[in-house]
């Protein structure tokens, strides 16, 4: 097994009585982008949020099967979930910066995990912002409120915030769907940059976007993993008729 590769094995999840994910088995390669596509309500977010155990907090959520991260099952009863979430960053659909200054948004995570040295924090702030291609735009206003930034800048700040605790894996749940096309383009470029260093799992509604940025693609339909392969292959010749229907815009 690879150091950080994520593997999902026989995953089934329920919200109450509702069986949401059905027998999902797949893996996510290191230093590449895997897109999870599928129509609304098919379980994309649920799959993503199972990988950092964010679903655990929802009353009535139940899960069977395993998800391996760096070789060990993240659902082991004695697994430290806080340490896990530190190593699996997440970016949400709507930009959700904390109502604090830009700087505080980026020191929040590191401080939680015990980094107190101001120089070290300063370095993390700059590093994360540079990686998120935001440094040049905000370097002079680090102490102003994050919510004064534009939507696209806020989303890049959220990416920087996820990177601030130095996770090898980045989960992104439709990160550009709430943004204008120009901001969306910037973030797509950023994703392509980031995959050099990170394992990225990108949920998207947008087939063209998945084809542009991803290396592998998974197609979910009503909780089932219908197709999972290299993006190039799926783009040219989808195997399953449902995948074809989705990428040609007939469902979704």
């Amino acid at each position: 097994m690879y150091e950080y590769r994520i593997e999902v094995k026989d995953l089934n999840t329920w919200f109450g009585e509702k069986h949401v994910l059905k027998n999902i088995t797949c893996y996510f390669e290191d230093n590449s982008v895997t897109a999870i596509m599928g129509p609304s309500g098919c379980g994309k977010s649920t799959l993503l949020r199972s990988i950092n155990r964010l679903n655990d907090l929802i009353p009535g959520f139940r899960l069977t099967g395993q998800i391996f991260f760096a070789g060990s099952n993240i659902y082991d009863p004695d697994r430290n979930v806080y340490e896990l979430r530190k190593r699996i960053g997440m970016v949400f659909q709507r930009p959700n910066p904390f109502p604090m200054s830009i700087r505080e948004n980026l020191t929040f995570g590191p401080r939680l995990h015990g980094i107190k040295d101001e120089d070290e924090l300063e370095r993390i702030v700059e590093d994360s912002l540079r990686k998120a291609a935001l440094w040049d735009e905000v370097r002079d206003q680090l102490d102003s409120p994050a919510v004064h930034l534009s939507g696209g800048q806020q989303q890049r700040l959220c990416i920087a915030r996820a990177l601030s605790v130095d996770p090898p894996v980045l989960l992104m749940d439709e990160p550009v769907s709430a943004l204008d096309p120009i901001s969306a383009g910037k973030i797509e470029d950023l994703i392509v940059q980031l995959k050099k260093e990170y394992t990225i799992i990108l949920v998207t509604h947008n087939v063209q976007q998945a084809f542009r940025v991803s290396d592998q693609a998974a197609f979910l339909y009503m909780g089932e993993l219908v197709e999972f392969d290299k993006t190039k292959r799926i783009a040219v010749a989808p195997e399953d008729p449902r995948t074809e229907a989705f990428i040609t815009g007939r469902i979704g």
């Binding site: 530190k86 939680l112 601030s164 605790v165």
Partner: peptide, 27 residues
Amino acid sequence: VPSSLREASLALGATKWATTWRVTVRA
């Protein structure tokens, strides 16, 4: 306070306690 703020904090590895006092109450 939108629940997405709480989730953002938890996703960074914060405990419920830290999330409540440092993010939710603060907001």
